[in-house]
Nucleic acid binder design. Structure first.
Lengths: 339, 339
DNA sequence: CTGTTAGCGCATTCAT
DNA sequence: ATGAATGCGCTAACAG
C-alpha cells in the first residue's frame, strides 16, 4: 500500500507538503503542488482514512441503526438518509438490528469503536438509559420514532396517535361492524400511540352492538399473519364485516395474505388499514389503504439535523430539536363503503 | 474519550498489558487481568478501532456495493450478507450506488480509504478494467451478477439465460398470442442473458402469426411503467392476448401498475412474468409469476467465499471460484392458461 | 509474565 | 512557502 511517504519521495517534497495539497487548505507553491499531484496520480495514492481519523478525531461517517433493511420502511429511510449525508461528505454505516436490543448494543459499540461522528437511531429496542449514556459521550444523536427525555438528543417523530385514530375512524365510516387491531411491539412508543389512537376513537364512536378487540402482534409480516389466523380460527365472524387496523404496512400485508388464504373477500367482508405507506402499498393485492408518513422527509430531516450538530462549534449551544411530523390517510382498495 | 493510557493508569499496569487482555491472546496473570477488566468496565473503555486498524492493517469491515437499497432484491441481499459477515466478526459497509458508475467509483475510493478488508460488488456499472485494477491491489473481491475475466476475482452468477428462456416458454404455453419483453439495462450481463434466453425461446417456438418485440427498459419500476405506457399507446393489441416478460420484479410491478391503470385484465388479457422472486412478489396485485433465484443463498455464499479469502495465509493459493446458481419458474396469478 | 520502545500513516505545530 | 518534529491510540517485537 502506497503511503504519504512514497508520494513525498517521488515528488521530492516533505510529507507535510503532500498533506497540505491533499487537504487543500495551506499555501503551497504552484510547482510543488503540481509535482505532488502528479505523484499522487502516478502512484494511485489514496490517503489512509484510519490514520487521518486518528489525528483529526473525525471519521466522516455516521452510524445508522435500523431494525430491518428488508423492511420497506427502513430501506427507504436509509436511502434518503444516505443521500443527504453523502452530499455533505459523510458516509452512512448501517447497522441492521433485527429488532433486538442486544444487537443494537453490539452495533453501537462497534460504531463507537469505528469512531463514527454521530448516530441516527431508528431502531427502537434500546433502553432510554442506555441512549442517554451514549449522549453523555458527546456524540451527536438523532433519534427517530421514540420519546427520550434529554436536552442533548434530537427527536423526530410522527403523529402516531392521529394515524391510529384516523385508521379507526375510517374503518367505522366504511361501515364495518366488528373491529380488530393488531398491535405493534409493546416496547415501542409508536405502536403504543397508534393503539391509543385506535382505542380512543373506538370508545368515542361505537354504538349498539359494535365491538372491537386489540391483539398483541408485531411489525413483522409473518407474525401478523399467524396472529390473524389463530384469531379467525377461534372466533367466527363470518356474519359480520370486520375492519382491521394493522400496526404497520408489513403487518397489513401479512393480514391480507391470511385473509386471502381463507377466501375472505377484501374489502367486502373485511377491510384492512396499514401504517407507513410503504412504496409497495399501492401494488399489494388489493392495494392497501394506509396512513402516510413521508419517509423521505423523515430521512432527510434527520440527516440535516445531525449535520447541523456536527458542524457547530464547541461553544455553540444548539438546542435539541423535537419535531413531530404529520400523517394522512390514504384510501385505496383494501377498504370500501360496505353498508 | 478514554484511551488505553487511562485504563493502564487506573489499573496500575502498562499499556501493553491492557492491550494483551483486550486482545485475549497473550498470557497475563489472573490479578492483573482482573484489574484491567475492572478499569475497562469502570471507565467504559472502548478501544479506538482506527488506531487498531492502523497498526494491524485490518479493519474488520467489508465494503458492499449495491445499486439500490430500496429495491427488494438488494435489500434482502444485503440482509443476508450482513448476517453472515457478522457471525464471523466482520461488518458490512454498504454503498448505495443508484446504478451510477460514478457513484460506484466514489464509494470504492472511500471504502479503500476506510481500509475495508474486502469487497462484495453487487453493483454492475463498473468497467471490467476498473475492477481488475482493484483486484491488483490484492483486496479480496467477490463479484455478483457479472462476468469478469480474472483469476483473482470470485464470481457468483445465476442462470439468467435459463430464466429468460423459461419465462418465454411459460408465456407461450399459457396461450398468449403476442409477446413483449422489457429489457433490463444494456450494460448488464444479467439483463443481456435474460433477453437472450427469451429471444432464443421465441425463435424456436413461434408459429403462424405469433410475434414478439423487445423493448429496452430498466430495472426500475417507474421506467418500466412508462415504457409500457408509451408502447400501449402507439400500438393496439386489444384484440390479442399479450404475454409480458419484465427483466426483474420491480419492472414487473411497474408493468402491472400500468396495466391496471388501463384496465387491462391480468392474467386474462395480459400475462406478466418477473424475475428475482422478491419477497413481495406473492403480495402483488395479482401475485406475480416470476423466476426464483434464492437471494439468501447468494448473499450467504458471497460472504462465505469472501471470508475464505480473508482467512487464508499469504502463500495459500485459493483458486478463484466461479459459481452459477440455478433458477426456477414460480407460477402465481399474473399468468394463466388463456386458450 | 510484564514493561519499554518503535512505528503504523497522517495532520499539525513550530521553526525557518 | 516548506521541512522537521511531535503525537494521535494502539499492537508487536524486544528485553528482562
Amino acid at each position: 500500500m502506497v503511503s504519504i511517504n512514497d508520494v513525498a519521495a517521488r515528488a521530492n517534497v516533505s510529507i507535510s507538503t503532500v498533506s497540505r495539497v491533499i487537504n487543500q487548505n495551506a499555501n503551497v507553491s504552484r510547482e510543488k503542488e503540481e509535482a505532488v499531484l502528479r505523484a499522487v496520480d502516478e502512484l494511485d495514492y489514496i490517503p489512509n482514512g484510519l490514520a487521518q481519523g486518528l489525528v483529526t478525531k473525525k471519521s466522516k461517517s455516521i452510524g445508522v441503526l435500523i431494525a430491518d433493511v428488508a423492511n420497506l420502511y427502513y430501506s427507504y429511510l436509509v436511502k434518503s438518509i444516505e443521500k443527504e449525508l453523502r452530499t455533505a461528505g459523510y458516509y452512512a454505516v448501517i447497522g441492521n438490528t433485527e429488532w433486538e436490543a442486544k444487537r443494537e448494543k453490539e452495533y453501537i459499540r462497534h460504531l463507537i469503536q469505528r469512531q463514527v461522528d454521530g448516530f441516527i437511531l431508528a431502531s427502537t429496542s434500546l433502553s432510554e438509559k442506555y441512549i442517554n449514556q451514549l449522549a453523555e459521550k458527546d456524540i451527536p444523536i438523532v433519534v427517530l420514532d421514540r420519546e427520550i427525555k434529554s436536552d442533548k438528543i434530537d427527536i423526530i417523530r410522527i403523529n402516531d396517535y392521529k394515524g391510529g385514530y384516523q385508521a379507526a375512524e375510517h374503518l367505522i365510516e366504511c361501515g364495518y361492524e366488528y373491529f380488530i387491531h393488531l398491535k405493534g411491539p409493546g416496547f415501542t412508543v409508536t405502536a403504543a400511540d397508534r393503539s391509543r389512537g385506535f382505542k380512543d376513537c373506538m370508545q368515542e364512536h361505537l354504538i349498539n352492538g359494535q365491538n372491537y378487540v386489540m391483539l398483541s402482534s408485531s411489525f413483522v409480516e409473518e407474525e401478523s399473519a399467524k396472529k390473524m389466523a389463530s384469531f379467525l380460527e377461534k372466533n367466527n365472524y363470518k356474519n359480520k364485516k370486520i375492519g382491521i387496523f394493522a400496526a404497520n404496512d408489513a403487518s397489513a400485508f401479512g393480514v391480507l395474505k391470511e385473509l386471502k388464504r381463507r377466501r375472505i373477500k377484501v374489502p367486502e367482508e373485511a377491510g384492512v388499514v396499514g401504517f407507513d405507506n410503504v412504496n409497495f402499498a399501492e401494488y399489494s393485492s388489493p392495494a392497501l389503504t394506509t396512513i402516510n408518513r413521508s419517509i423521505a422527509d423523515v430521512g432527510k430531516l434527520s440527516a440535516e439535523i445531525l449535520l447541523e450538530n456536527l458542524n457547530k462549534d464547541e461553544n455553540d449551544v444548539v438546542k435539541a430539536q423535537n419535531k413531530n411530523l404529520d400523517v394522512e390517510l390514504i384510501i385505496r382498495e383494501s377498504t370500501a363503503q360496505v353498508n
